[in-house]
Amino acid sequence: MSNAPVRPLSPRRLAGSLISPVALRLEMVVLLAVTWELVAHYAVTRIGTSGEPIFPSLEYLAKDSFLQMSNYWSGGWGAPSPGNGGTQTYLGAVLALASASFASFGRLFAGVGLGFVLGVVLGLAVSASKAARSVLSSPVHFLRMVPFLALAPLFEVWFGKSDIGAIVFIGYGSLVVTFVGIVNAVGLVPAVQLARARTEGATRRQIYRWVILPSIVPAMRATILVIIGLGWTLDVAAEMLGAQSGLGVIMEYALRFAYTGRVILVSFVYLVYAAASFYAVQWLTGWAIRWHPSQAKARRRRRFSVKPALALK
C-alpha cells in the first residue's frame, strides 16, 4: 500500500497520520486527561467533607494527594513519619507506596502461585480417573458458583486479620479456577491425538507427559492470566476488609475519611499493577505456546486482514 516515495508533508498526509491506530490511542489518552481537567476545574468544583475536592484535578492528585501518601510511612530510610510529628515528604510518599505495594504483590504471588500449583496437581490427578471426575463434578460446580468475594468475611473469621488469611483466600479462588480449567482442558485434548499415541505404543505415563501435558499448556497459560486478574480482585477485597499492610489498608483508611484524592490514587495504582502483571505474565509465558496455530494467525493478522465489506464492493 505505502510504496509511494517520500513526499513533503501535505495537509492530507498530516490528517492521515493523525488517524493512524497508534496516534488514535495517544489521542484517546490526551482526550481523557483534558476532559478530566475540564470537569475538575469547571464542572465539579465542590469541596467534600474531608476538605478535599470531590473531583480532584490531575495536578492536585500528583502533588497534594501523592504527598499525603507519606502519612502512611512509619519513618526510617531518611524520611520522617508524619504520624509522629514529622513533615510530609515525597520520599516518604514513595516509601509508603513502595512498602504497601511490596506487601500487596507478596500476597498476590504467594496466593496465586499456591492456588495454581495445587490446582494443576489436583486437576491432573482427578482427570486420570473418570470416577473421580464424576464424583467431584457437582461439588466443584457448586464451589465455582459460590461467589469468592462473598467468602472474604469467612476467611477473616477463620484466619483473623493476617497475611495468611489473605494468601489462603487468594489461593482458594485461584485453586478452584485452575482446577476447573485443567480438568476441562484435559477433557478437550483431541481424541485422535490420544489414539495416535496409543497406536505408537505409548504407555499411560508417556501419554500424560508427551501428549496431555503439552496439549494443555495454552489452557494453563490462559488460566494463569485469569487468576492473576482474579487474584488482584481478591487481594483488594482481603486488604480492604482487614489487613495490617498493603495498598488496601491505605484505601480503606482514605475511604473512611472520604479523602477522594488518595482513593483515586490508590485505585489507579491497583489498576496499573494488575494490568502490568497481566501483560508481564502474558509476555513471559509467550514462548510456551509458540507452536500454537493461533500464534501464526496473530503475527499475520495485520498483513492479511481483509475487510469483507470492502472486498464485496
Binding site: 485422535v192 489414539a195 497406536t199 505408537e200
Partner: peptide, 30 residues
C-alpha cells in the same frame, strides 16, 4: 493398541507442539 500396528488417522493427529522432526520420531522416542 500396539506399536506393531501403525495408524495414519483421518483427522490431523500431528502434534502441534512438536517440531516436524520430533513428530516423526515420536514413536521411536516412546
Amino acid at each position: 493398541t500396539g506399536a506393531d500396528r501403525g495408524v495414519i488417522f483421518q483427522g490431523d493427529a500431528v502434534y502441534p507442539w512438536m517440531r516436524v522432526a520430533d513428530n516423526v520420531g515420536f514413536g521411536l522416542r516412546v
